[in-house]
Design a protein around this nucleic acid. Structure first.
Lengths: 341, 341
DNA sequence: GTGAAAGCGCTAACAC
DNA sequence: GTGTTAGCGCTTTCAC
């Protein structure tokens, strides 16, 4: 590396475009042009400027650029938490897709708190993000107003509800459960219970419960037992106790993590899965295939969802139009925690 | 909600401070003052302005504010991936701490690619983040130069090496392994092997290997077998085969996910843990306590690390000084995958 | 207390 | 092709 803080810019603070212009003996407009790859710059001049930039170690100020262009080249994302492999995986893909298209990512977690989400939406607007990823379709009116008044382009991921009125990029949580219920019923289980994730303010959890109930009804059945639990193996272990004593012969879990807890409790009770009781999850975390027994579950395309969400946002921005939704498919993965009775 | 797009701001684009000023019949300076809670504004005037703001549905432009104040109120983070529960948990805590202090978070993933990390560091500087979280101490000279020339405040998390020359917020990966090795040796295992995470460009993985080797030497032992594997249960299952056929009686894994794969392969070989062979992990993922057998591992304070990293950055910014490091402690968690022989 | 004016670092017309 | 001139929307002296 060469030494920084050469001549020019004798003052304090970072090197600016003006410093470069002075040093290269051109106008700031020209510097700006080479920076933005304008073709109307003589090669000779371009080179001079580039040298000046290297010499001075100039780093453009993207904030100022954003202000002048009125484009931030930034996407935002507000998710409930990063402590959930599905959201984390989705965000990883979202960020990669955004970056590959020259966009940065501003991220916030709402802790499943609608008021907090509204607050964060406002901040995202203040920060000038050009597109926003939100999770689910349940939110405060205030949030909707904010989104609408600012004409903020956004996608609501992890759900797909044509009636939602917001562009969804995700899958139909209720419908995904149909496949699972059909499978369990086909296997011959009849005393089917469910241990769901907390439904309050979480439309994905609600939809899954509703999907199970609806499909069960379609088969002329109803939930043998029902309970909710927080998102953790430990909580699930406790929460399933009551269901177990109800004599259920199958337990549909709101997600894989809950299923892990259920599996653990079931084993502790000396019941064998899937002979005595079936256990199914939702998400298909990487680990689920390696459990003993391997978990029958629903594969959720988290990576694809994050990527798609970014793409929909980016295309809408690019083409200066409204965001379109995109429906993703889930896929039933039959493994060893269910069996043909 | 009241109707937006009232009178004033007849033009296009969002409502600006100037619109509010015009509407409230004051200067933009005054609007700015009420926005920033300046005490030198008459209550009466303040109220008028606040009403105008509400009326017009004005949302401040944080970008412009940042330009004028030369403070972005934004922190940045560049991590290898979000597809790792430890990083995700750390980022969750980092974001929360940042937000609680009025800072937003700009995030990027480098995919364990040093060149990519350098590129991203540059972007973070361009975006004007006031502090940056990086992972580990291994990076390109180019990255160091960038950091130094821009005088970017930063912390290198997930490691603690007093000799690193960069402010670390984390723990000593090598030393953490000492405890684990001591425990395994104390138990009576002697043919100790290691299945590490990929070391290339990953100083945390390297340190763990080195820690194991050093402590083994201290006990007059050496690695019975050694292999590396990618971060996934599946890869670990395959990678451990060779180690298993070496006749090792204990396997130290680079992290918990690897241990999961090892546990799975060991069982498939009809060996019983911990009687025939011990298996230990590193991280203490939430699931590790619920495995069968429950995994002996090292608890890594990911949440605390993220929070601390944010705090150190924030304090340094606040007090306008260099970032200080902070050493966190790991904790050996003895469970059922090791036993006194 | 409040307003006028001068920027923050950049881009985008518009001249030349 | 290149320079000049206005801003982008905000904060911040500095007068009054």
């Amino acid at each position: 590396m060469t030494d920084k803080r050469d001549n020019a810019n004798s003052g304090t603070g970072p090197v600016t475009q003006a410093d470069v212009a002075r040093f290269a003996n051109v106008s700031t407009a020209t510097v700006s042009r080479v920076l933005n790859g304008s073709s109307l710059v003589r090669p000779k001049v371009r080179e001079t400027v580039e040298q000046a930039i290297a010499q001075l170690g100039y780093v453009p100020n993207e904030g100022a650029r954003a202000l002048a262009r009125r484009r931030s080249n930034t996407l935002g994302a507000i998710i409930p938490t990063l402590n959930n492999a599905m959201f984390a995986a989705g965000m990883n893909a979202f960020e990669e897709e955004a970056r590959q298209n020259g966009y940065g990512l501003f991220i916030s977690v709402s802790n499943y708190d609608a008021a907090q989400e509204s607050f964060l939406i406002r901040q995202m607007i203040e920060r000038g993000v050009e597109g926003l990823l939100l999770v689910g379709n349940t939110r405060m009116d205030e949030a909707r107003d904010l989104l609408q008044q600012s004409a903020m382009r956004h996608v609501c991921a992890w759900a797909y509800d044509p009636a939602a009125g917001a562009p969804n990029v995700g899958f139909d949580n209720a419908k995904a459960m149909y496949d699972l219920v059909d499978h369990v019923v086909d296997c011959g289980y009849r005393k089917i219970a469910m241990l769901a994730a907390m439904q309050a303010g979480n439309d994905r959890a609600q939809q899954r419960v509703q999907g199970v109930r609806a499909r069960l009804a379609h088969h002329g059945l109803k939930l043998h037992a029902f309970a909710e639990t927080r998102y953790s193996v430990q909580w699930a272990k406790k929460a399933v106790v009551r269901i177990l004593s109800s004599g259920a012969d199958a337990i549909i879990c709101g997600n894989d993590v809950i299923a892990y807890g259920v599996l653990s409790s079931v084993k502790a009770k000396a019941l064998t899965v899937p002979r005595d009781i079936a256990v199914v999850g939702f998400d298909d975390l990487p680990l689920s295939a390696d459990l003993d027994p391997a978990l029958t579950t629903v594969r959720v395309p988290a990576h694809q969802m994050g990527q798609r969400a970014a793409l929909e946002l980016l295309n809408a921005i690019e083409e200066d139009r409204d965001v379109r939704g995109y429906q993703l498919e889930t896929h039933l993965v039959i493994r060893d925690s269910t069996m043909q009775l």
